[in-house]
Write a protein that binds this DNA or RNA. Structure first.
Lengths: 195, 195
DNA sequence: GTCTATATTCCGATAGAC
DNA sequence: GTCTATCGGAATATAGAC
């Protein structure tokens, strides 16, 4: 049996719309329509639109950060494979949910109070654990720089997609191919700045 | 004499609030209060909130893109100096206007119709013109990759500031120092991935 | 739990006096 | 050009019947 509860319907619809249009631009009526449920049920289950948004974002944010966290802290994976794995994970995720990161980051920077409870120690990356596995151990780069640079190179094209396209650097229909081909290049680039 | 017209007051207030909170979260009453003018004057001078937003963003976007464009296309600057100059410009700009890019990018991805007239050919970067000035001319990297990577490394920490801080990679009060020290590193990194 | 109907607030925009 | 007052609609949220 495959029963989807009303609560789940709301979460799924809210997730889709919040990620596509952001918090303020998404109305409770939009969510109710998308979920095919009665408007009043949103408040019945989640008390408020703000609370619903928190639940949605909290879950997505957890996934995003735990992906990096778990891969980085696994001592049985080589540094190269860590880079490959994270690149693969994020590229695929953002190809599916293009607006996910930009909406979350925007809401985080613009509406900080919404996230007072969300940004907790749960998400802390205690020790990046990546550089030390490289053969050339005493490279000039720090773990922090390494992680930030890797994430920059992976994530930026998605965040700036609209500008990249309108500036003529990449055509809209070539974008997907570009970020896919980019995956192997990123590994190469990261390795070269580490040496 | 230093007369600030009502029109200018509105533009300044709108710029500040739109960039800080985004389009939908900023109300016309907020703008009127911030500008210390009467609510009705916004429509008197700018017809609509949407039109006011367009004027504000169009100007900021032009600055952002023309900065890269003009530096890249100047044949009298070496590639290294181009990187230094763009890094310097963007880091300083984003230190002043932290939310500028994230708000524009979010609105671009979420509210595309607002930008139908804004993203024109004015912003096209016809030819990046950067790699060819490097000594090692036949490196594996394309001009497009080079520009995108440079912008990634410069801009990402600002866009993802909230996440970087809450993940514990950098402390909030160390952030400014970090991005300033990062400027020299970026040049080094870009050069190393180009060779 | 789910519905209809409505309360309440907020927003962008405008009419009309000065 | 600037003001007050208000329109018309959309938004979140809730009361109360079923």
């Amino acid at each position: 049996m495959n029963i989807i509860t009303t609560e789940q319907k709301i979460i799924m619809a809210a997730n889709k719309l919040f990620i596509r249009k952001g918090y303020t631009a998404t109305g409770t009526r939009d969510i109710a329509d998308e979920a095919n449920i009665n408007l009043a049920l949103i408040n019945y289950y989640f008390d408020s639109k703000e609370n619903l948004f928190k639940e949605v974002v909290q879950k997505e944010l957890k996934t995003l950060l735990n992906t990096v966290k778990s891969i980085l802290s696994d001592e049985n994976i080589t540094s190269e494979d860590k880079i490959i794995s994270i690149t693969e994970n994020y590229t695929n995720l953002l190809l599916e949910k293009e607006h996910l990161l930009i909406v979350i980051l925007n809401e985080l920077s613009v509406n900080k109070k919404l996230f007072a409870n969300i940004t907790q120690s749960t998400y802390r990356i205690r020790k990046p654990m990546i550089k030390k596995q490289f053969e050339d151990n005493n490279s000039g780069i720090s773990d922090t720089d390494l992680v930030i640079n890797m994430m920059s190179l992976i994530v930026f094209p998605f965040i700036a997609k609209s500008l990249i396209i309108s500036s003529g650097l990449i055509n809209e229909n070539e974008f997907e191919e570009y970020v896919i081909r980019r995956k192997e290049k990123i590994l190469k680039w990261i390795i070269s700045i580490t040496k």
